[in-house]
Design a protein around this nucleic acid. Structure first.
Lengths: 229, 229
DNA sequence: TTTGTATATCTCGTATACAATATGCCGGAA
DNA sequence: TTCCGGCATATTGTATACGAGATATACAAA
């Protein structure tokens, strides 16, 4: 009995599987752009790199495909997904619609403490915007949106919305790197926060949709510029 | 060259992998309710049943978890998801929101031929309702909703909406088995079709949401009754 | 009878061996 | 020179073997 470390409190603590480690590693590398789209993910090579056999690698690759970060072609391999501009556009739209939906519900359902946190974050972001601290801003911004999505209190909608955000994460690193974009972002956030606190479902939805669409526009324009440059 | 069945037109034709076959088999059995929720999916047993080894079975199980038809508990196995009534309620809501979102966009984006097909289906369903052919009605009803979802012309939104529909399919078999429900369904469909053809985004969304919420209510009431009986 | 411990067994996670399939290269013929 | 076909290689898909962890059972002691 002594030395009993059965910490049963909370959710079961389980040993991290190798496949999980590989999955997270690959995901991070893909999202960070270290592995560019179109790359074939070689099972043996990755296994060697992570120091595991092919089996856990294969499981990680399957998971990657399930999250549509990659695509499996039988007997050929799995390729990091290269997305067309049109598809990226669609993904942004899907994310915007998901967050708008969550936000609309959240306006009615957020708890008092969630609303308080929302305001706190918003104020914090205003300060960060003034200070020009883009890195920190981006972090808070991400949590801000996560909080809104979670505010709908529907596990499935949250999961769908977050899955879209995850897919787009690799593309969002381009954004929010100039003062103009950030101050526009803050203004749009103000609108969103107001609507949520006023419990105005309609306005919350449209404000969120508009905000995300405009963010997407900026991204696509910037990317287009990069390609031409 | 003769006997060359490389029909390269369209997407590549590949030999069906065993893991795919197992996946589809299990999925069908789960959806059909042959494998009840809570069942532990034994890897060796399933392998024997399908005549394959554990490896493809494991891949299928992972895919099942990715589609959240089952849940993996490390070192314990994967369990067919047993959903609480509250969660089922949330899933219905998520599906309703997804279809409403798709429908709102579809009202603006459906092609002429899609709109025509929509009307055709609706008329067909009215006839089937009058005839009391519930089985066929259910089939057309499913295609009706699929068509609306697809009408948003956004691959990602369609995928999200369809994933919710897939999750709920096992529960929907209870529905639409009495004349009252069917006639109400038809009336609600009328509203939806009108809004879509009028390109009235707002109304399309609310009509769809209302329709699906009311369907969910019926299901939950019926289920509650069954439990008490 | 009950409880604690030890063992037995079962299943999962991982590694490796084998089979099937695609790709690339090389030689030969037109 | 160019095109075609067959072979070699590499990589994926599948099967099996092995080790780790967990649960269940049996037995002993209180």
């Amino acid at each position: 009995m002594l030395g009993d470390d059965n910490m049963v409190g909370g959710s079961a603590q389980h040993r991290r599987m190798q496949s999980e480690i590989v999955l997270e590693g690959l995901e991070a590398e893909i999202i960070a752009g270290i592995i560019p789209p179109g790359t074939r993910l070689d099972e043996t090579g990755i296994g060697d790199r992570f120091g595991v056999s092919r089996t856990p690698v294969r499981e990680a690759l399957h998971a990657l495909c399930a999250r549509s970060l990659a695509e499996r072609v039988p007997y050929k391999g799995v390729l990091v997904l290269a997305l067309s501009p049109e598809h990226i556009d669609q993904m942004f739209e899907a994310m915007a619609e998901m967050e708008a939906t969550c936000g609309r519900l959240a306006s009615q359902r957020m708890t008092m403490s969630e609303r308080a946190e929302l305001e706190t974050m918003h104020r914090e972001m205003n300060a960060l915007a003034d200070a020009g601290d883009y890195e920190t801003y981006e972090g808070v911004n991400s949590r801000f949106h996560t909080l809104i999505v979670a505010g709908c209190h529907n596990k499935d909608l949250v999961a769908l919305a977050e899955s879209m955000r995850a897919k787009l994460r690799p593309f969002r690193k381009y954004q929010l790197h100039d003062r103009g974009r950030i101050s526009r972002s803050c203004a749009e956030h103000q609108d969103i926060v107001d609507a949520l606190l006023d419990q105005d479902a309609q306005r919350a939805g449209t404000a969120l949709r508009r905000h995300l669409v405009s963010a997407a526009q900026e991204f696509l324009l910037r990317r287009k510029g990069e390609v031409e440059a």
